[in-house]
């Protein structure tokens, strides 16, 4: 994987990487992807299609559950303004 691919990937993952991280993580990613290519050895025709899922049709009734006071959740927010959670946005 070249650096530009790593950059796009980091971008999608919302990670800022330092120069040295691009090198060290890049090397490690490379090594593992290389190892993943082992999966290509399997005979394609012998593989089943798609993803198997266990269970189906689990639903819950459309009824209110309120076992946690929302105020407790707001206390975890680093910054609040009235009941809004605040984030910086300098335009």
């Amino acid at each position: 994987m070249d650096v530009s691919e790593l950059k796009i990937t980091a971008e999608l993952a919302n990670l800022n990487l330092m120069e040295e991280e691009f090198v060290s993580l890049g090397r490690e990613v490379e090594k593992i992807l290389d190892y993943f290519s082992k999966m290509m050895e399997a005979d394609e025709g012998s593989l089943p299609a798609g993803t198997e899922r266990c269970g189906a049709n689990r639903i819950r009734p459309d009824e209110q559950i309120r076992d946690i006071n929302p105020d407790v959740l707001l206390e975890n927010a680093p910054e609040l303004e009235d009941r809004f959670i605040v984030i910086p946005n300098v335009l």
Binding site: E63, Q64, I65, R66, P70, L73, R83, F84, I85
Partner: peptide, 15 residues
């Protein structure tokens, strides 16, 4: 199980 309702005080129908 939070109430689905428009127009309430901010961050009240949350879990």
């Amino acid at each position: 199980g939070c109430i689905n309702r428009f127009g309430d005080e901010p961050n009240t129908n949350v879990c």
